[in-house]
C-alpha cells in the first residue's frame, strides 16, 4: 500500500446550483509535491478549505494521518499537522514579522494560557521563529509590521509561519502569486527541498513552477478532477490539453 498522509474521498461541495467540488478523491504521499492545477474558478481553493477545515463538504470525507478528520475544527486539524498557507495572505497585520512567526511557534507548542511570561523573550519560540524567517529569506525584516510588507513578502511570511508549525503536510494555495521572477525562483528552490521535510499539496498557476517541482499533478476543471499523473502524463494528456493547457497556450 502506498503511504499517504492525506486522502480525500468523494468530496462534493455545492454552492446553490454550482458544484464547486465534484466527488473529488485524491491523496498526498510522503515525500512528494502534488500539484493541483486548474483554470480560475475551478474550485481549487474550495477544495483546500474543505481539507483544512472551515468549509464543510456536502458529501465525502477527509482522512489525515490515518484519521477521519471531517468533523474536526480547523484548529484541531492544524494541531494534527496541517500547515496551510492562504491564497490571500491571512496574517496578523498589526504584528511584526517576528510576532507572526512567534505566533506560529506558540500555536504549535500549545500552552497558550500563560499570563505572566514575556512571550517575545521566549528563547525556544524565538529560535523556531528565526529559523523559519531565515529559510524564506525574511530575516532582515523581523521588525517590520506585516502591514508594511510588500505583497510578495507577505506570501513568504505565510510560508514561514507554516514552517513554525512543523507540519506533517503543507497545503499551499498559490504561494508564488505576486512574488516576481526572482522570488519565485527562490521559493521553487526552497519547496524542492521542503518536500523531504513534509509533502506538499501545491496549488499553483505558474506552469513552469508546477512542471519543474511536481511529482504528480492533478487537473481540476469545473470542480472535477479530469486527470492525475506524472508531469509527463499530464503534458501529453489530450483531455488536459483541450480543457486547460490548450487554452493557456492560446492565450
Amino acid at each position: 500500500m502506498i503511504d499517504s498522509i492525506l486522502e480525500t474521498r468523494g468530496l462534493t461541495k455545492r454552492f446553490g446550483g454550482l458544484v464547486a467540488s465534484k466527488a473529488i478523491s485524491l491523496d498526498l504521499r510522503q515525500g512528494e509535491i502534488h500539484a493541483l492545477i486548474g483554470p480560475n474558478g475551478a474550485g481549487k481553493s474550495t477544495l483546500i478549505k474543505q481539507i483544512a477545515g472551515g468549509l464543510q463538504p456536502d458529501e465525502g470525507s477527509v482522512h489525515f494521518d490515518g484519521k477521519d478528520v471531517s468533523k474536526l475544527s480547523t484548529a484541531a486539524r492544524a494541531r494534527l499537522g496541517m500547515g496551510r498557507t492562504f491564497q490571500i495572505s491571512s496574517l496578523a497585520m498589526e504584528y511584526t514579522v517576528l510576532q507572526n512567526v512567534v505566533l506560529g511557534a506558540l500555536g504549535h507548542r500549545g500552552n497558550v494560557f500563560w499570563f505572566f511570561n514575556n512571550v517575545m523573550k521566549d528563547a525556544e519560540l524565538l529560535e523556531t521563529a528565526d529559523a523559519a524567517l531565515t529559510k524564506v529569506g525574511l530575516e532582515d525584516f523581523r521588525n517590520f509590521r506585516a502591514s508594511d510588507l510588500s505583497h510578495g513578502q507577505r506570501r513568504q511570511l505565510e510560508v514561514a509561519v507554516a514552517l513554525t508549525l512543523d507540519p506533517k503536510a503543507f497545503l499551499m494555495d498559490e504561494p508564488m502569486a505576486g512574488l516576481g521572477a526572482e522570488g519565485s525562483q527562490q521559493l521553487i528552490g526552497f519547496l524542492d527541498t521542503l518536500r523531504h521535510q513534509a509533502p506538499i499539496l501545491l496549488i499553483e498557476h505558474d506552469m513552469d513552477a508546477v512542471f519543474s517541482l511536481a511529482d504528480r499533478v492533478s487537473v481540476l476543471v469545473y470542480g472535477e478532477i479530469i486527470a492525475t499523473g506524472t508531469v509527463d502524463d499530464i503534458r501529453t494528456n489530450s483531455d488536459v490539453r483541450n480543457a486547460y493547457l490548450g487554452e493557456e497556450g492560446a492565450a
Binding site: A52, G53, G54, S73, T74, A75, A76, A78, R79, R84, F86, S90, L91, A92, M93, E94, Y95, Q99, V102, L103, G104, L106, G107, H108, G110, N111, V112, F113, W114, F115, F116, N117, N118, V119, M120, D122, V161, T164, L165
Partner: peptide, 25 residues
C-alpha cells in the same frame, strides 16, 4: 504582563485575524 504574555499574543492575534489563529492550531 498579560498583554505581552503567550495568552496576550494569541488573544490580540485573534482580534486581528481569527483565521490566522485557527491556522496555527
Amino acid at each position: 504582563c498579560a498583554a505581552r504574555s503567550s495568552f496576550g499574543l494569541m488573544l490580540r492575534a485573534a482580534k486581528q485575524n481569527e483565521e490566522r489563529v485557527q491556522a496555527v492550531g
